[in-house]
Design a protein around this nucleic acid. Sequence first.
DNA 1: CTTGATGCAAAATATTTGCATGCTC
DNA 2: GAGCATGCAAATATTTTGCATCAAG
Lengths: 154, 154
Amino acid sequence: MKERSIDSLISRLRIRVKEQNLKNTSQRELIMAAMYKHKGHFTPEEILAFAQKEEGGKNIGIATVYRALNFFEKEGFVVSISFGADGKKYELNIKEHHDHMICTECGKIIEFESDEIEKLQEAEAAKKDFVIKDHAMQIYGICKDCQKTNKGKN
Amino acid sequence: MKERSIDSLISRLRIRVKEQNLKNTSQRELIMAAMYKHKGHFTPEEILAFAQKEEGGKNIGIATVYRALNFFEKEGFVVSISFGADGKKYELNIKEHHDHMICTECGKIIEFESDEIEKLQEAEAAKKDFVIKDHAMQIYGICKDCQKTNKGKN
DNA sequence: CTTGATGCAAAATATTTGCATGCTC
DNA sequence: GAGCATGCAAATATTTTGCATCAAG
């Protein structure tokens, strides 16, 4: 499971910004750095809180987080995942593979990877002349722990 | 690609309702029937509009749609998918497989299925002692049409 | 200096909830 | 009849936007 370093992420960010004749800002980089530190799936509000704890991030506003996340998502730095009542959550896209099992009882997210599935995805995409930029897979079900506690259901 | 009939869906709904000592209502059934007719991915507002066009659905409220969708999702009748700025969309879960390719340029959703991926998902879940109830897979990228129109990008 | 980005607050959306009343069972 | 579900409106929550100002290039 190869991961990118924060440095390579930031430099990729700067490249993408430059390519589009936009301006680089410390806020956007702080938001990315904050997401890098707190690996996982978070709401924009949570990401804001993390970013504000970063050096120099005291007064970042929520609007900036939304703007940054939308940009990151468009550029493929971030993926969003939504499940049930939990709303939309964002995660830095730093892993080679990107798949989740989500427990519908407790909301726990288990990550996994499969090269075989990856290859089959590429094969399916090729059939439809579709160029893959990113992918996400969610398996919904009952995790090990909840199977124990939740016998009589269904 | 086997699909359930609307009748089997409604009867499954009634069973789930009864099991939980809830009460069956025409609204919930109308919402399900409306989703069945308009196969695809829709926002709660869109689903409301469809349901209101159903016989006897004139004055269904948006709150009822949200309540129904939350119930349907909890019970596995419906899956939600969220991508980029498009917000959360719901789809009746009537197909055996449930996978999507989403074009990040035009938002088009291409459906596909793969038994092999299905089997691998089961294998992965087994490794983690996870009981699959449902699954969803999204491949993000550029569709055939947008590849033509959009040469110079990236 | 030009123009994109930010922070703030307001606006627009989306989603949930309280409550009186209607319907199932 | 008892109690869940509904519709409506109000309350929240979420996300976007306008605008004055800041700051990158």
